[in-house]
Design a protein around this nucleic acid. Structure first.
Lengths: 151, 151
DNA sequence: CAATTTAGTTAGCATAGCTAACTATATTCT
DNA sequence: AGAATATAGTTAGCTATGCTAACTAAATTG
């Protein structure tokens, strides 16, 4: 893709890097999306499930909605689907308004399998990078994650 | 299969890097998506429009569907929305079955503005990286693009 | 020129995003 | 304590996006 030329902000080079990073992220996910369909679970459900499985334990619906940057009614329906599919269990909390959402054993298994499929092909493609580039990427990822959180 | 497997086993670190890269891409786009809502155009429409605007000229519907990794009926409806909004124009080709889809001036403007909004916030966030990290990222992007194309 | 192939559309289903309006529980204020 | 308010989720209803199956129209093939 063509890079937008702009010297007004953050330096033209950084702007171009941002443009290409954005484009790379789009293409990356577009390719990997295909693998996710095999799980039979929709992308939003899969992503919410990953928060419960990989994000360190149970959450309330509101916390899940915030983690997924989605409105409560949207998350309410996503969770309903996950519960219907037996991948998530609802529990009570001290606060009678809140629900406690936890992945079931089946939910954990399905997520891990899907994650494996998805990441497998990416890891394979990454292995085509030089040893130095892989090292660079490994070092960068931490910092990129911070950058993204501050977006 | 054996070669594949041994590659993966040999690259446990690469597997983890792939996992984090995947996750970073998801979160990156999720944040940037918020900016896209300002345009009043849906994400699939915006992405299809970007192929027409940045991808070097008009395409047929089938080509667009393939570029977006989507089935023809899906793209048919996305295009219908873009045409209704005045962002894309349908034209004829020598082959009476094919349509020629081209961005209108309005479509080009809307896309460029949205892209600017999106990429500007990312560029700003990236400027928080150290000079060295930005340099590393710049060097890596080329190679990452190749990796992704080979996914 | 009939049969087949190719390009796109239409119809119908599911998921996912939103806002508005509702219920139920907790908290705050008088 | 009891009323008013705030908070957590759900329900209803809209739009957009994904799919497959079945259709129409045009081009190609035999």
């Amino acid at each position: 893709m063509t890079a937008v030329k702009s010297k007004r902000l953050a330096g033209g080079e950084t702007f171009e890097t941002a443009d290409r990073l954005h484009s790379a992220a789009i293409h990356l996910l577009r390719r990997l999306r295909v693998r996710d369909r095999e799980s039979g679970v929709g992308p939003a459900q899969l992503s919410a499930l990953s928060v419960l499985v990989l994000g360190g334990g149970p959450r309330s619906l509101g916390e899940l909605a915030e983690a997924e940057q989605v409105r409560p009614p949207t998350m309410s329906r996503i969770v309903a689907g996950l519960v219907r599919a037996g991948l998530v269990r609802r529990g009570k909390t001290e606060d009678g308004r809140r629900v406690r959402l936890a992945a079931t054993a089946k939910g954990t298994r399905i997520l891990q399998e899907g994650r494996l499929r998805r990441v497998e092909s990416l890891a394979q493609a990454l292995s085509a990078l030089s040893k130095e580039d892989r090292e660079k990427l490994r070092e960068l990822i931490d910092h990129l994650e911070t950058v993204i959180r501050n977006l």
